[in-house]
């Protein structure tokens, strides 16, 4: 057998010993890592699914411009002309305040009340429709600056709000993932520290009879990688379970609105990222502990 193969097999055996020396502690650690991994991954799944929902909402190309109550008919006409010549705007329709009032009183059956008002409280308004959705914000921004304009309302406002919540969710996921990876590294560092302390005699003797630092370090790194990997696997399992649990009620809920909807499971990319993150964090934690405590043993 090649010597590096033998070295790795020896390390693997030592790793197995580490695992079996404290099976309950190992199980506990894997569980902790699993839950730590499941939290951000679940959040990620939810956020991704929300993203998909937002994607389904047709982004509007329509907006309503309300003029100031003080705006004169000539000002309304000027704005109408201006909008009609705008290259991005496909359709412009002026709603006269008198017509709007009449419509409202007819539609809502509060004609009597309106009649008693004496003065029309509604401003003139202009409905516009853009050629494409992308330009909406830009166009509205210039319209808002017009002195005759009081307020501009685009129907996509709530969609925008929703998408900013999704954005917040994504940031939270990343932050949480970072914090939990740190936790994972610390948990691993602590486990390895305890292992080194309980095996200090073996480490000391091994060093005295010619073990390299690599030889000493290897089982601890393998152990941490294994623990991190199993934790990630468990975390993935937890998320799959959560999705499976949430789907039936979600489907029922969507049916109430005549929709079909299911949560999608985490993407392969997300799962790969989780595994890589768990492995790297575990290894870094282990490396930190090994470096620190082997130095201490050296000094002793």
């Amino acid at each position: 057998m090649k010597s590096w193969l033998i070295a790795h097999r020896t390390a693997l055996l030592a790793t197995l010993k580490l695992l079996l020396a404290a099976p309950l502690a190992s199980f506990f650690n894997v569980s902790v890592i699993g839950v730590a991994v499941a939290l951000p991954l679940t959040l990620h799944v939810l956020v991704t699914n929300m993203h998909a929902v937002v994607g389904r909402i047709p982004t509007t190309t329509e907006a309503t411009i309300f003029l100031k109550p003080s705006a004169t008919p000539s000002e309304t006409m000027r704005l109408e002309k201006q909008l009609k010549s705008h290259p991005e705007i496909a359709k412009v329709q002026v709603v006269d305040r008198a017509i709007a009032l009449k419509e409202i009183s007819q539609r809502s059956g509060i004609g009597e009340l309106v009649g008693n008002l004496g003065e029309n409280p509604l401003p003139d308004s202009i409905l516009i429709e853009l050629k494409q959705a992308g330009a909406l914000e830009l166009v509205l921004a210039t319209i808002r600056k017009d002195p005759a304009v009081d307020e501009v309302e685009a129907d996509s406002a709530w969609a925008r709000r929703f998408s900013s919540i999704v954005d917040l969710g994504e940031r939270t996921t990343r932050l949480l993932a970072g914090l939990l990876l740190l936790t994972l590294a610390l948990v691993t560092a602590n486990t390895v520290r305890l292992q080194i302390l309980t095996r200090r005699d073996e480490i000391e003797v091994s060093k005295l009879i010619g073990a390299t630092d690599h030889f000493i370090r290897r089982p601890f790194l393998y152990f941490s990688a294994l623990q991190g990997g199993m934790g990630a696997l468990l975390g993935w399992g937890i998320v799959l379970w959560v999705v499976a649990e949430l789907n039936p009620p979600l489907e029922q809920f969507a049916q109430l609105y005549g929709e079909t909807y299911r949560l999608s499971t985490p993407s392969l990319e997300a799962v790969a990222t989780v595994f890589a993150g768990a492995l790297v964090a575990s290894l870094l934690g282990a490396l930190f502990a090994v470096r620190r405590h082997l130095r201490q043993l050296d000094a002793a």
């Binding site: 073996e202 005295l208 009879i209 010619g210 073990a211 390299t212």
Partner: peptide, 17 residues
Amino acid sequence: PFVRRHIGLIFQDHKIL
């Protein structure tokens, strides 16, 4: 470590595991 591998050591305090 590589120097030590050419040496056999019998320790005064044994260092048996």
